[in-house]
Amino acid sequence: MKTLVIGASKGLGKALIEGLGEAGDTLLGVSRSRPENLMARPGVDLRWIEANLGEPAMAAQIIEQAVIEDGLDTLVYNLGIWEAQAFDPAYDFRGDHDDQLQAIVNCNITSTILLIKRLLPVLLKSANPRIILTGSTSGLPQSGRPEVAFGASKFALRGIADALREGYREQRLGVTLLNLGYLNTEDALSTPRALAEQRGEGQLIPVHDVVQVVRMALSLSSASFVKELTLPAIGDERF
């Protein structure tokens, strides 16, 4: 299996690179620069593509050219930026700068659409093409969050996923949307999960759990797919 992970240099993306794949698989990570000290699972061929998704058209072209020859089975789009004061009690939409709002839309929506458009011809050649979009509980109705641009961009992922499923159902394209709650990205995948799950006292999700969910989704046959999955922290009172 050949899997492309967008936003793979740190946090959840780094955990996905370190936790996905089996011996003989190929993982391609994408970020502005290749991070140091990144280890894939034994037998997994790890490659890197340097591209800045803040420049959607150029990044999409670079990534397309990097995968077009060897093919691609799965795209994991794990990228999202948010407002400077997001998830802070001091957040006020009226204080958001216009250029920051444009950057959020550019990175979280425009880049997603342009890249998928570029990669679809490659993906659809796979016997089991899959797209996994890492969304947020902020993109759910009545999420309880006030961040306008970030929330709107995560709502947009549902529309992207729904349209792709309808447009390419006959080509058996499986599109999964993961609505993730607050993550513990301080503890890497190398940290024992029993220790990582203690951080946040029930308010944070270890990256280990997200990796496990993605591995499950990618392990399914071509006859089924995970449409949408919401993964909140156990202590999140919104859920």
Rank of each mutant, 00 (worst) to 15 (best):
E186R: 13
G181Q: 01
E201N: 10
T191L: 03
E197P: 00
L204H: 00
L173T: 04
Q198A: 13
V210M: 00
D209G: 07
V210Q: 02
V211K: 03
H208N: 04
Q198H: 07
R165F: 08
T176I: 01
L218H: 00
I205Y: 01
G202R: 09
A196L: 05
L220Q: 02
Y182M: 14
L204E: 00
L180H: 09
R199S: 07
P192N: 09
L183E: 09
G174D: 01
R215W: 07
L220K: 02
S221I: 06
A188F: 03
E186H: 11
G202N: 08
Y168V: 07
E201K: 12
V211F: 03
L164D: 03
V213F: 09
L220R: 09
Y168T: 12
T185E: 11
A194R: 08
L189G: 02
M216R: 06
L178A: 05
S221E: 10
V207P: 04
G202Q: 08
H208E: 10
L183N: 04
A194T: 11
E201A: 08
G174W: 01
Q171N: 13
H208T: 10
V207T: 04
P192V: 12
A161L: 07
M216S: 12
G174K: 07
Q198F: 05
A196Y: 06
Y182C: 09
G167Y: 11
P192E: 08
A194I: 09
L180V: 10
R169S: 14
A188M: 09
E201S: 06
L178H: 00
S190L: 07
I205M: 03
Q171E: 15
